[in-house]
C-alpha cells in the first residue's frame, strides 16, 4: 500500500514540473487539470486505506469541482486574445 502511494506522488510530480517549466498557458492548464484529478484520486485512495467515509465523500466532491473550476478559468483565458 505504501508503495502505491509513493508511485502516485511521483506521478503527481510530473505535471508539477510541466506547470513550472512550460510557458504556454494551455500547457499550464493541462498540468492543472492533471494535478486536480490526481490529488482527488489520492484523497479517495487515502480514504479507502483509512476506511474513512467522510474523507471519501469530500474526495468525490473535489474530483468534480476541480474540473468545474478548470472550465470557468478556461472560458476566461480563451477570450483574452479577442478584441
Amino acid at each position: 500500500m505504501n508503495l502505491m502511494l509513493l508511485a502516485m506522488l511521483l506521478a503527481l510530480l510530473i505535471p508539477m514540473y510541466e506547470a513550472w517549466q512550460d510557458d504556454n498557458i494551455w500547457q499550464k492548464m493541462l498540468a492543472f487539470a492533471s494535478i486536480a484529478t490526481k490529488t482527488s484520486i489520492l484523497i479517495l485512495v487515502v480514504s479507502v486505506l483509512r476506511d474513512d467515509w467522510m474523507i471519501g465523500v469530500v474526495g468525490v466532491l473535489i474530483l468534480s469541482l476541480g474540473n468545474a473550476s478548470l472550465m470557468l478559468l478556461a472560458q476566461i483565458i480563451k477570450r483574452l486574445n479577442q478584441i
Binding site: A31, F32, A36, S40, G59, I62, S69
Partner: peptide
C-alpha cells in the same frame, strides 16, 4: 493557474 494547483494540493493535504 498555479494558484489552482496550489489549491488542489492544499485540499489534498487537509484531507490527509
Amino acid at each position: 493557474v498555479i494558484r489552482g494547483i496550489l489549491g488542489a494540493v492544499a485540499a489534498l493535504v487537509y484531507a490527509v
